[in-house]
């Protein structure tokens, strides 16, 4: 995306450090405040997912409308590994992430052949293809999904069935993923990615093999989205078709848009806003969909920077 809504200014790292410390501190004390831990854990998984998605669109300018496929695939693989193969949690997570990574290599090689609007349509079609595959293959149990997944002992001694323990494990996973993404966007790789987003022909003329950079960003994004999906299995204790459906991909886009495309902290804020909205409006049935659509429309028409993007713009900071 090459318009003025995505901040391109030099990034003073100090502001981001302060914001990171505040975010981490808040998340560390959450279990002490009596907030429903399941809600926050779910929020953390989606926050990581949105951050991974944001790596691709905010820094690479590629809109994936099929990111749910990584969430769902990693979820299914991890769930299957834990329940059927009886693997330990760490190996289950590893299997799920590996599954998502393999999928991102395969779909990435296909999707990066086109750009812009076509890229979005292709990723959407690929995820729909996968949806139908998962609907029919026996190991996903179709409409029922994989249920009652054992949480087990992480590294043999951390009991994930205990909510408070699980919370800190999920938080650690989230922070790890977040820092990987932060490192990636501030590396030379991230700079090249931004250059491609701003002006691809120019990046090509400077000798960068832009397709390789885009593919790498796609794989990194898909793999981390898979990590989020694997973590989510321990929170929800199920893996179902909902996580592969196009409406999930739409929600990921919405979270990032609300928080701010191309901002470091926006996707985290956006994820919690949308999850909270779903939580509080759960009784309103399909009106939730209508409201989500309304937020999409409002964001695109009047609020393209998102919450964090607007704040950063107002204070002329980079967040």
């Amino acid at each position: 995306m090459s318009d003025d809504t995505i901040p391109t200014a030099r990034r003073p790292v100090r502001d981001e450090m302060i914001a990171f410390v505040i975010m981490t501190a808040l998340l560390l004390v959450v279990p002490l405040t009596g907030v429903y831990p399941f809600f926050v854990m779910q929020g953390l998984c989606f926050a990581l997912l949105a951050c991974a998605f944001n790596l691709l669109i905010g820094y690479g300018g590629l809109l994936s409308f099929g990111h749910a496929m990584f969430l769902g695939t990693a979820g299914y693989v991890t769930a299957h590994a834990l329940k059927v193969w009886g693997l330990s949690p760490e190996l289950g997570i590893l299997a799920g992430v590996a599954g998502a990574a393999a999928l991102s290599v395969l779909t990435g090689l296909i999707a990066i052949r086109r750009q812009g609007i076509y890229f979005a349509m292709i990723t959407l079609a690929l995820s729909q293809l996968l949806y139908f595959v998962y609907l029919q293959t026996p190991f996903t149990h179709g409409e029922d999904g994989i249920q009652g997944i054992p949480q087990g002992l992480l590294f043999g001694f951390i009991n994930l069935a205990k909510p408070i323990t699980l919370y800190y494990v999920i938080l650690t996973g989230f922070l790890f993923g977040f820092l990987v993404i932060y490192r990636a966007i501030n590396s030379p790789f991230g700079e090249v990615l931004k250059a491609i987003r701003e002006n691809e022909p120019r990046a090509v003329s400077l000798g960068y093999k832009t397709d390789q950079y885009k593919l790498l960003a796609y794989i990194l994004s898909g793999t981390l989205a898979g990590f989020a999906g694997a973590l989510k299995v321990f929170v929800a204790q199920n893996a179902s078709l909902t996580d592969v459906h196009w409406s999930m991909s739409g929600e990921i886009v919405l979270m990032t848009l609300v928080g701010g495309l191309g901002t470091v902290f926006g996707p985290v804020v956006g994820a919690f806003v949308i999850i909270a909205m779903q939580q509080y409006l759960a009784g309103f049935g399909q009106w939730v969909t209508v409201i989500q659509g309304g937020i999409f429309v409002i964001c695109v028409l009047t609020f393209r920077r998102g919450v964090i993007g607007e704040i950063a713009h107002y204070f002329k900071r980079s967040l």
Partner: peptide, 17 residues
């Protein structure tokens, strides 16, 4: 272009919802 996709996606959610 991508904003057009996002806006019309939102419109579709509203109408269908």
């Amino acid at each position: 272009h991508l904003y057009g996709l996002l806006l019309t996606f939102g419109m579709a959610l509203i109408i269908q919802g």
